[in-house]
Design a protein around this nucleic acid. Structure first.
Lengths: 223, 223
DNA sequence: CGGGGCCTTGACGGATGTCAATCGCGGTGG
DNA sequence: CCACCGCGATTGACATCCGTCAAGGCCCCG
């Protein structure tokens, strides 16, 4: 069985840890971090583990907006109250950054403001590319691009490495706008194409990254 | 025939018109403003008219990312080069804001930085809600929420007002991730439900805003 | 009058959702 | 020890929504 790399801690993004490192919160899997409607008075930087950000609709439909990995910031797009729920997917540690402190710090160090803008930019780009994924791609293309993205963010781009997939099929489905069954069917299809394999639950091995990318980018004639 | 309100000019968003009002560009319908890959050295604030922002894929598929109305800023999420194309949907005037000037100004007036962050926030929220629209909603729900959003942004929330819809069915389809035919069918369905009517091409009247909202928010049992 | 957009409407097929059965695995308790 | 249960994943059968293809209408304009 392959060694699955842990989801590691990262250096503080803001550089100004001494000023902003107000508090680290430790979360067990499933522990809530943010409820929709809470006052949006903190940003959270994921230090370790994986955190999921999602919206739940009156009828139980759920849209996962993002899986946040170490180094990611949650709450940049929130002004008054949070517009989403957020909880831990795995054991996780997050750094809580009070917005008031942050704004004061930005006043003293304008370059931090530029950095925040840049991160907001990236978030806009991510959200827009998610839109494209969701509306222009077929089910297998979505699954393939999801796995590609996962591997890239964890820098597991070499073939044959075991990639931990801490989310359930339901999480993936709610992220990709599909059902559990469709996700499962298409993972099976990728397996039968010998692009990936599933050595154990919660892990996958990407055997043919190029082909996976081709499928994810709609460049392969898969039906 | 109802009088359709023009899409009006707005006061400069930045307040600092004397500093930033570097140039107004006038565009006829269909005139290009930004090509994907151009150096992202300007922001554009729409002053009058409607501008569309979109991506075109290798296979001709097009995703409209946003319709920008007066007061909207284009290019906030762009760091190096633009990642989208952009052109005028109607006659339009835009204020070109050189980024270099803007950064200098922000250094002198940090509150502008906060304002930019807030606009970026709004853009993130918009992109995320577009994701949800695209992946969680049925065709009629998408069309209804599109029309609701249009009415809200133009502040035509009273029933019976005539709302100008300057975009074609193809534009709406490429924004909502649908086909022309599906958009048309569902507009017809909303008409037969007596929620809207089409007094003339390029205009709609919303008769039952509450019901339209219910449908757009997935709160109505429509098949 | 004819042509070309743009829109609407109909018929049909296919991808994906829904419903249901089954499997494997881990935990629990008799 | 093993039967039982619950949860997640897989697989199959069927239904349905939406895309595709095609025809036709409306309107403007030459």
């Amino acid at each position: 069985m392959g060694q699955i790399l842990p989801i590691q801690a990262s250096a503080p993004v803001w550089g100004a840890a001494s000023v902003l490192d107000m508090g680290i919160r430790t979360l067990r899997a499933q522990d809530p971090l943010i409820f929709e409607g809470d006052d949006a008075d903190h940003l959270y930087e994921v230090v370790e583990g994986v955190v999921r950000v999602y919206k739940v609709f009156y009828d139980g439909r759920r849209q996962i907006i993002s899986f946040a990995f170490p180094g990611d910031i949650i709450g940049l797009g929130q002004t008054d109250t949070y517009s989403f729920d957020c909880d831990a997917l795995t054991f996780a540690r997050v750094r809580a950054i009070p917005k008031a402190d942050l704004l004061r710090t930005v006043r003293e160090r304008p370059e931090l403001g530029a950095q925040m803008l840049e991160m907001a930019s990236r978030e806009i780009t991510a959200a827009q590319s998610l839109s494209i994924t969701l509306c222009r791609k077929s089910a297998i293309e979505r699954v393939a691009s999801f796995l590609c993205g996962l591997a890239e963010r964890r820098r597991h781009t070499a073939a044959g490495q075991t990639l931990s997939v801490p989310m359930t099929r339901a999480d993936i489905a709610d992220y990709l706008g599909l059902t559990i069954e469709t996700v499962s069917r298409n993972i099976t299809k990728l397996k039968s194409l010998q692009v990936i394999s599933l050595p154990e639950p919660g892990a996958i091995v990407i055997h043919d990254m190029k082909q996976l990318k081709r499928i994810g980018d709609c460049e392969a004639g898969i039906q």
